[in-house]
Amino acid sequence: MTVTLHVCITCRAGQTPGEGETAPGARLHAAILEVGAPDGVTIVPVECLSACNQGCSVALSAPGRWSYVYGRMSESNAQDIVAGAAAYAAAPDGIVPWRTRPEIFRKQSLARIPPINILPEAAE
C-alpha cells in the first residue's frame, strides 16, 4: 500500500515572495524531492493544506491509516520529513511511536485524522 506525502507548494510561511520568487512551500517540495522518496512513499505537491498560519505544511496519509498534518516546516527539515514518512510507511496503522518520530514530527503536528472506514450501510 502506498503512503502519500502531500507537500503544500503554495505555502508562503508568512512571507510575501517578490515577483518571480519561488514560494517557500515550493522550495520545501524541491528539497524533499532532492532527498528522495523512501520505499512505499509517493510525494505529491498540493495547492493548499489550509494551514496558512503555520508556515510550510506537509501531510501523510494512506488508506486505512491515521493521517497527519505537520506545520512550521522549511527546506532544512527535508531529511527529517522523509525519515518521518518512511517511519509512517512502516507503521501498519500510521501511528509511529512518539519517541521514534523525528523531533519535528513530535513538536510540529497540527492535526491527526482518524482513518475513514466506509460502512456498507453508509454507502446506500
Rank of each mutant, 00 (worst) to 15 (best):
E19T: 13
A59T: 05
S50W: 11
T16R: 13
C48T: 12
S50I: 04
C56A: 05
A13I: 02
E34M: 09
E47I: 00
I43Q: 04
Q15P: 06
E34Y: 07
C56L: 02
L60P: 05
S57Q: 04
C52I: 00
P38W: 02
P45L: 05
P24I: 00
A59G: 14
G25I: 04
L49P: 15
G55Y: 09
I43M: 04
C56Q: 01
N53H: 15
L49Q: 14
A62E: 05
C56G: 02
H29E: 10
R27Y: 04
T16C: 13
S50P: 02
D39T: 06
S50L: 11
N53I: 01
C52D: 04
S61W: 06
N53K: 13
R12L: 11
G36R: 00
L49W: 08
A23G: 08
N53C: 05
V58S: 11
E19W: 08
A37T: 10
W66R: 01
G64S: 00
V44I: 00
Q15Y: 03
S61P: 01
V58W: 03
C48I: 05
Q15N: 13
A51W: 06
E34W: 03
P45V: 11
G20R: 10
Q54P: 10
A23Q: 12
Q15T: 15
A30T: 12
P38Q: 05
R27W: 09
A37E: 12
E19V: 12
A62Q: 03
G40H: 01
S61V: 01
S57G: 12
G14R: 03
A26S: 11
I32V: 14
P24T: 08
T42I: 03
R12C: 13
A37N: 03
V44M: 11
E19Y: 08
A59V: 11
L28D: 11
L33F: 06
G64T: 00
P63V: 00
A62S: 14
A26G: 05
T22H: 04
A26L: 10
C11Q: 08
A62P: 05
W66T: 05
R27D: 11
A62G: 13
C52S: 06
C11E: 10
S57A: 15
C11P: 08
P38C: 03
E21H: 07
T16G: 11
R65H: 02
C52F: 01
A23V: 00
I32F: 07
A13C: 10
G36A: 09
E47C: 06
A51C: 14
V35N: 07
T42N: 03
T22P: 10
G25F: 13
S61Q: 10
R12Y: 09
R12P: 12
S57D: 09
G40D: 06
S57P: 07
G14W: 11
A31R: 11
E21N: 07
